[in-house]
């Protein structure tokens, strides 16, 4: 018997046409009525038939939390694992099975609190996985404690006098962790979600998407000031690669990089179109993407959405396989008999 990789890649076999129904499992969806997770699930189930991947080659891995129930509702392969560890588990799966399309579904507590270490290392290694982080700035499953993205002073059951912690900015964390793809979208705009998730899926390597998601039970309206229908035009700053960054009615406002190396929002009429910062998601230096991730201090100021950063870097699994191929070329395929005799041997009798 020889050692083989347990892959059953379909190669170039065309993938059968599917619809949303084909990607939904037979399990009853059990999120609270009105939860933002429903619209994210719908966006993913509508997107997958368009991606040209087979159900059997798709895997959703999650940790613990409301978002982590996601795999149960997909008719793909899936694992609902333990708190915070999904990126680590997905790393092992994606490295050993580069033929698979591996998604990680996580929340702000799962990804940034208990699983923060795994998240940053999956990103820096550039493991070929797509990480969706549902950010609702609260712990939902444990019924309403503050999360690592909750605003300072948050009054919750565990912080009756207000939280004392400085929150994480998820995109700043991802960019700081050498992520090669970083994006933000929100649960109120299916079209934007699908477009952003498609980009994330198509990216080779680790893709990180923050999805602003409303928890209508424990943190209702957390993003209303920016994602509410009436507020979006004024408060969401769409990022388009190669385009000047502008928003507001008729694009009346824009983002300018000042001489003091700070980003600020100005009226386009006053500043002039040429003064606007042109978005370059492929910029190798992450500093501008980092600054954009911090343009808003919270979901009450104009907030950029879309792809912040998308740079090409070899996926980790690919590097692993290339190294194996190189060593095989040099040493030949592994031979057990030879391995046991690789140190000094002697014969008796």
């Amino acid at each position: 018997m020889t050692t083989t990789d347990a892959t059953t890649a379909t190669g170039d076999t065309p993938v059968a046409l599917t619809t949303r129904k084909d990607w939904a499992s037979d399990q009853e969806v059990r999120w609270c009525p009105g939860c933002g997770d429903y619209s994210i699930l719908a966006a993913v189930q509508l997107l997958l038939p368009e991606l040209g991947v087979a159900r059997e080659n798709t895997v959703f891995v999650s940790g613990i939390g409301c978002a982590a129930r996601f795999p149960y509702y997909m008719s793909t392969y899936g694992m609902h694992s333990i708190h915070g560890r999904a990126p680590a588990i997905a790393t092992g799966l994606a490295i050993s099975r580069p033929d698979l399309d591996v998604w990680v579904v996580s929340g702000d507590g799962d990804a940034l609190s208990i699983g923060g270490n795994h998240l940053i290392h999956a990103l820096r290694r550039n493991v070929d996985i797509t990480i969706l982080m549902f950010n609702n700035q609260i712990y939902g499953l444990t019924k309403g404690q503050y999360s690592p993205t909750s605003e300072h002073g948050k009054v919750t059951k565990s912080t009756p006098f207000g939280s004392l912690d400085t929150p994480f900015n998820p995109l700043s964390v991802a960019i700081g962790a050498e992520a090669s793809f970083v994006a933000r979208t929100h649960d109120m705009d299916r079209k934007h979600m699908m477009a952003t998730l498609r980009r994330a899926h198509d990216h080779k390597g680790a893709a990180f998407v923050e999805i602003l998601q409303n928890c209508n039970v424990f943190n209702d309206g957390a993003f209303e000031a920016i994602t509410g229908k009436a507020n979006r035009e004024q408060m969401l700053v769409p990022l388009e690669h190669g385009e000047p960054i502008r928003f507001g009615p008729d694009g009346s406002k824009g983002v300018v990089l000042g001489a003091d190396a700070q980003l600020r929002i100005e009226d386009v009429d006053a500043a002039g179109v040429d003064a606007l910062l042109v978005h370059d998601e492929q910029r190798s230096d992450p500093s501008l993407a980092f600054m954009l991730s911090r343009l808003a201090r919270g979901p009450f100021e104009p907030t950029p959405i879309g792809v912040f950063r998308a740079v090409e870097r070899p996926a980790y699994g690919q590097l692993v396989d290339e190294q194996i191929a190189q060593v095989r070329e040099r040493k030949g395929p592994g031979d057990l008999e030879a391995l046991l005799r690789s140190a000094t041997t002697w014969t008796v009798g």
Binding site: M79, I89, T91, G92, L93, R97, L100, H118
Partner: peptide, 9 residues
């Protein structure tokens, strides 16, 4: 975790 993920695969 990675070992378990690999086993799943």
């Amino acid at each position: 975790g990675a070992a378990l993920g690999a086993s799943f695969g």
